[in-house]
Simulated scan of single mutants.
Amino acid sequence: MMKLRRVPLLLVLLFAASSLHAADVGPKDDAFIVQSRSFLSSHPDLYARVLGMKSYSKGDYKEAMRQFRKGAYYADKPSQAMVAEMLWKGEGVQIDRAEAYVWIDLAAERLYRDLVAKREQYWSELTELERRQALDKGAALYARYGDSVAKKRIEAILERNRRNITGSRTGFVGNLRIEIPGPGGMPIQVNGDEFYQDKFWQPEAYWKWQNGTWKALPTGTVTASELMPVAPDETLKKDDE
């Protein structure tokens, strides 16, 4: 068994939410693209996270939880981590440390270092009864929010919105110009091939882009104890919408 460090989870997630991946983007307009309403309206995973963090910062925990659950439904790991944190602390909801553990286990599903460390911290602080309760709760939550089902939801939306906006089944955007807010609110135009970069819309590239974001987050050293996965089942429930 190895020593765990306490991860400042809220600071990590605030960084992720506020930057919206701007730290590792390439073209100069990317930061404006990913924070624009036209982009976020087609990315409900990121948009729900942004709205959730805004509500959380205002102390409106009920609305924050609603938005984080929506982001979680679309495979957003920071949103899942915030659901966990709020359940753990009892922010806007009754404290439920067993369910909080399942949510942080979901958030750590892609093995992001800080979320794995937070999961291990939670597990180390649970009682034996809470651990059994967490294992009992795990299957149903994984069936609804695990990557095996949640990723498919956002992937379908990205594909549909890209096709609908371009008006072409081929997705050709060579001559398309898109106006988005720039510095100081002044509009700027970006090329369609910048707005519709593969990393923003095509599933494999999209997940690679998101994974890369976590390399830019605050780092530290952590050594974890034996992992305690919660096995999913095969049931997929209806959309939260």
Rank of each mutant, 00 (worst) to 15 (best):
A107L: 03
L129S: 15
E241W: 08
M53P: 02
D239W: 09
Q94F: 09
A140W: 02
D193Y: 15
P181E: 05
Q35G: 08
D60Y: 04
A143E: 09
E241K: 11
L217P: 01
M65R: 11
M82S: 05
L51W: 07
G167I: 06
E179D: 09
Y73K: 04
V83F: 01
E91H: 09
S38L: 15
L10A: 06
L141Q: 03
K58P: 03
K28W: 13
K237L: 12
W214Q: 04
V93I: 11
K58R: 15
R144A: 08
K238R: 13
I95R: 15
G174Q: 11
Y122L: 08
R119P: 02
W214L: 08
E63P: 00
D233G: 13
Y196M: 09
K77N: 14
M1A: 14
S19Y: 13
P232W: 04
I178S: 05
V25I: 08
R131F: 11
A156V: 08
Q202M: 06
L9F: 06
W123Q: 01
P187M: 05
R110K: 08
R37D: 15
L141V: 05
K237G: 08
A107R: 00
Y196L: 11
S36D: 08
L4C: 05
A75E: 06
F39D: 02
L40T: 02
K199M: 10
M186Q: 12
M2E: 11
T166H: 05
F32T: 01
S41P: 00
V93Q: 04
T213R: 11
A16H: 11
F172T: 13
K62S: 13
F195M: 07
F172S: 15
A75L: 07
I180C: 07
K151F: 10
Q210C: 12
L126W: 02
L111V: 12
V50H: 07
M228C: 10
Y101K: 02
K199Q: 14
L126R: 02
E99S: 09
T219E: 14
R119A: 12
I33G: 00
G220N: 14
R5M: 11
A231H: 07
K152E: 12
A81W: 01
D105A: 14
E128L: 12
S124Y: 03
A17N: 05
G138I: 08
S57R: 11
A64Y: 03
G138W: 00
L4M: 11
R132I: 03
G220E: 13
P27S: 10
T166P: 01
G71C: 10
L40A: 07
Y101D: 02
A150H: 04
W201Q: 02
F39A: 04
G26Q: 15
S148A: 15
S19D: 12
K28T: 11
Y145W: 07
L40N: 01
E63V: 10
I180E: 01
P187E: 07
P203W: 06
L111E: 15
R163P: 02
V12L: 10
E241H: 14
D60E: 14
S42E: 13
I104F: 01
D24A: 08
Y142V: 06
G220F: 14
A143N: 12
L14Q: 14
A31Q: 12
D45H: 09
K137L: 10
R6M: 09
V149M: 05
G182M: 05
Y74V: 04
E63F: 03
G220R: 12
R5Y: 09
S36W: 05
T219K: 15
D147P: 10
R162V: 04
I165K: 06
L115M: 13
I165E: 10
A108K: 00
A23S: 10
V25P: 00
A107N: 02
